[in-house]
Structures are given as C-alpha cells and as structure tokens.
Design a protein around this nucleic acid. Sequence first.
DNA 1: CTCTACATGTAATAAGTTACATGATTGC
DNA 2: GCAATCATGTAACTTATTACATGTAGAG
Lengths: 183, 183
Amino acid sequence: MIDVKTLCLGVLSRGDASGYEIRKEFEEGPFSNFSDAGFGSIYPALRKLLEDGMISIAQHGTDARPDKKVYRITAAGRQVLCQAVLRHPAPDRLRSDFMFMILFSHLMPARHLERILTDRIEDYERLIEDMERRESCDAAHSPPGEKFVHGLGLAMHRAAAAYLEEHRHQLLEGIRVQTKVAE
Amino acid sequence: MIDVKTLCLGVLSRGDASGYEIRKEFEEGPFSNFSDAGFGSIYPALRKLLEDGMISIAQHGTDARPDKKVYRITAAGRQVLCQAVLRHPAPDRLRSDFMFMILFSHLMPARHLERILTDRIEDYERLIEDMERRESCDAAHSPPGEKFVHGLGLAMHRAAAAYLEEHRHQLLEGIRVQTKVAE
DNA sequence: CTCTACATGTAATAAGTTACATGATTGC
DNA sequence: GCAATCATGTAACTTATTACATGTAGAG
C-alpha cells in the first residue's frame, strides 16, 4: 500500500511545494480522493525523503515567511516514484464509521439515525458541488489521469448520495417495525 | 475513528465467534464493506477486550480443535458498543493505490495501464457478482441496517465499475495523445 | 482587533502490519 | 498425499495520530 512518503513524492512530481501546500493537495486536490495525511505524517515523511536524497530544498524562507521551505523532487525521487507506479495496486480500502453505525442502527434512537443520515446526505451534496465546480474550472487543461480520477471519485460519491436519498425511508421504516416487534 | 476493538465488539454483538470467524466477517460479511483487519490486529484486540471485561470466553476448545476459543460479548461490552454507535461518525476514508497510479498513468507504459484497468474492472465484476449472490440469498431475514449497508456498498461498486468501463478508452486515448505531443 | 489561513515541527502514544512459529482437519 | 481451510498467537517493525508548542500575515 502506498505510504505518505510516496504520496509526497507524487505531489512534488507535479511541482515544487511546501509541507503545508502538500497537505492542501491531500485535502482538496485530486489526491483527496484516495488519501489523507496530516502534518504529523507529512513533515516526518519529508525529513526522511530529504535524508534519502529523494527531494531537495528549492527555497528556504521568504521575506514574509522565514520558516517556509519549498521542496523539489530529485531525479532519484522521480525514479522511485516511477517504480512505485509500476507495482500492482493493492485493493482499495474504505474505512467508514458511518456504515458501521448504520449496521447497528437498531441500537440507536430513531432521532439519531435520522440525524446521521441527513448529515451524511448534506455532506455528500456539498462535496459533489465542490467537485463539480472544480471540474468545470480546470477540465480542459488538466492531464487525463487527473480527469479520470476526479470523474471516478465523483461517480462514486454521486452513487452513494443517490442511494442514501432513495433508501433512507426504507431503513427508517425497517427500524421502526423491528422496534415494534421487539416490544 | 472506529478501531479494531470496537469492530470486534460489533461482530460479537451479533453472535459468539472465534478470532478466526471474526476475521471472516471482516473479509466476507457486511463488515467487509467498511473495514478490514488481519489476525495480527484481531487477536491483540480480543486479548485487550477480555482483560477489560468487554468479552468472555464462551467455550474453550472442542474435541477437534483444542485451541479454539469462542468469545461472547458481556453486558459491559454491549454498553460500550452502544456508546460507540452514538458518537458522530468521522468522515469516510478511502485509500486507493489504484487511483494514485492512474493519476500517474503518464509515467507508465500503455500496456501496464491497460492491464491495471482490465484487472480492476474484473475485480469489480467478481465482487459485484458475489454481493448480488449474497443479496438474493439472505435478503429477507437480514436486519434493515445490514441490507442498507450492503446496498450502499453495492451501489458504490457498481458506479465505479460503470465509470471504469465507460471512460477507460478516453483515458487510454488521452495518454496516447499526450505521449505523442511529448515526442 | 480578531479570525482565518499560512507555516513548521516534535514527542508521546496508539495502531496496525509482517514475519515468524505451529499444528490439525477436511476434501479431493 | 496435497492443498485449502481452520486455528492461535507473539515479536519486531513500521506507521500514523494526537497533542503540544510557536508564531506571522492578511482580510475584514
């Protein structure tokens, strides 16, 4: 499975960036579809990559931000990234508290279940809107791989949102009946 | 985020099980939609849960398998599970090597890209078939939460599979053009 | 003047993975 | 007889998370 070091290498292969900017990519950019990492994993990863000669410091500090460090991928780093990309991809892994909780929705008050369903639908709607906005923004000049990943993520989120909307009443009803039977 | 201990508690709330059986749930059952854990995390989790009185040993060894231990959730364990279910769910997290690699498909030979796309589509088709088989098998007698999670997972996988099939040629063509321009 | 965004990093902790180590049973 | 499945567990390692610790710049 791809680790944070390789993820950072991936971001830097698209252009120089600081640790902070790399994190933004994980949060908002195309990388957000399949990864996330906080500062606590990015900074140590960058230190390691620097030690190993996979990246270099392109710029250290500006007038405004003396601490800022802009990293640049090296030839060695590019090679390592190419190798990583050629490996057979491990299966996708989804971690979802939401699904876990739904599985045990019979253990919660109906109000809470309604709440988490509504919240989740709203979350998806916001996310989809954001993605659609970005899509129309930079569709033309983004590379094919990026468009593909963006579209795939969007398709999955749309499917999830549609399913939630179409089946929430069925779930609520199912729970209601089950509760009545238990009485 | 839900940890392996809570996941185990969730499985055991549905019935007694051994470590080995719990893992099967993570691999094949409804839990496979949103989690996975190997023996290396399940056994230590069970030990901890036992120490804390969240589970007990319902049966230790059979004629055939003297080592087998069947665990049972305790009242305390059930309480802890109920509390966990009431917390606000953390956002879902997807880790996908596949998407990472597609993002860098311009760094790989066209043959390799075709290969991972074909493989992935096949993987999805197999997975969807399996899920459909299980759906028709135990649709009637499975609780509403389980049906919902199953349906949601299926909807997402179908959307992904459909997207891959519909857009793979577009990606391949895009990469081809990009490579030509670079020459 | 206050809030948000920018900016970096460490230390302690928690968690999870991999490799190791072993062995019986069942079906083919 | 062989492969797959059942069955458990530990130790070493790698990884990632959380909390801590600090401070500037720009917008309103």
